[in-house]
Amino acid sequence: MTINNKTMTDLERKAALSLTDTERVVLTDQMNAVLACLDVLRACPDCPPAEQESPCPLRADEVCPSTDRAALLSNAPETDGTFFFVPRTVE
């Protein structure tokens, strides 16, 4: 789609603007440039073709050792060595 004079007049009225002739030319050009970008984007495939390998890397379902609890809790604002503690928050 492109912005022509008629669309511009329409937009001007809807946006409650009053443009000078110079502004009108500049804005029309700018808007057409933005729309041209959208056409470029539209040409990119949104999704990979169905039979292509998933772009999302997957890992095998294998258990790895977790991080030492003491190390993780060293970041806690408050702890008893077992739990993270926060001010009482009941929904």
Binding site: C47, P48, A50, E51, Q52, E53, S54, P55, C56, P57
Partner: peptide, 9 residues
């Protein structure tokens, strides 16, 4: 996380 594709196969 990139999109997750599930193939017909």
């Amino acid at each position: 996380l990139p999109p997750l594709a599930v193939s017909g196969e």
